[in-house]
Nucleic acid binder design. Sequence first.
DNA 1: TGGTTAGTTGACGTTCACGTAAACCGGCGT
DNA 2: ACGCCGGTTTACGTGAACGTCAACTAACCA
Lengths: 140, 140
Amino acid sequence: MPSIAAYAPIAPRLDREHFSISDLSAEFEVTPRALRFYEDEGLIAPERRGTQRIYSHRDRARLAWILRGKRVGFSLGEIREMIDLYDLGDGRRVQRDVTIARCRERIATLTAQKHDIDAAIEELNDFVALLEQTQAQKTR
Amino acid sequence: MPSIAAYAPIAPRLDREHFSISDLSAEFEVTPRALRFYEDEGLIAPERRGTQRIYSHRDRARLAWILRGKRVGFSLGEIREMIDLYDLGDGRRVQRDVTIARCRERIATLTAQKHDIDAAIEELNDFVALLEQTQAQKTR
DNA sequence: TGGTTAGTTGACGTTCACGTAAACCGGCGT
DNA sequence: ACGCCGGTTTACGTGAACGTCAACTAACCA
């Protein structure tokens, strides 16, 4: 029954030169459909052998970036922006200044998110403590 | 031109007994539509004076929770779950154990998110440093 | 009494991030 | 020769989280 348990995580074969779409979808637990979608949106651009996609290590690193960006709540559009920033390292001076500024903005929002997370964790911890305390009272 | 700059943040009047929908939408920079939507989804349940919603301090605190949950990437469904957990503090023992377990799960995913964010910040910092370095070289 | 302001309920539209078929192709295993 | 496997494109469907009208009401104000 290869229906629900598909796309399970598989140890990455980093010795490989390049990867197929199913290699990466297995390793990162995303569907091939998602990878093709990211390509349509301009987030990755693997080479082709004929019609088939072949992903390099660089593409793989990009994908890792994308998924981490998603996990921390960025939209695909925002992630593409950040990736594009990286590809601008050799741009002109003004462009590079803009890039630096955008990066700092990103860092600021990420830092704010960290504070939100800390606050949420704290509240949850307090709540758990409270629950365990009432439990201890009943046991007594 | 009250079109785009509407719903700007306004200092909370915490001396107030309760708040209108536009009070809260102004303070938290969300649209009234969003607040009504949260109510439809069972996230808040303000009282009514006739047909109009009147939000208590408790409702206001709830809303803060909701928005923080959103900022750290939770869906409204997940946030409703977490809120429901809070309202279960007086439940039975088994239920409370389940609640504690769910809280721990939440804390775990939040912690994982923090690591993701730290990694992203670090990479961005490295990249900014690299950009500033090439800039310094050109200036020299 | 008429007009403005703040609120209400539908109902439909929209964007994002894919899911889900349908139809096709090239290789290879027997 | 045949079928399957892994991959492809095109296209329409979907759930979440609202936006955007339209039509209505209740409160106040000159």
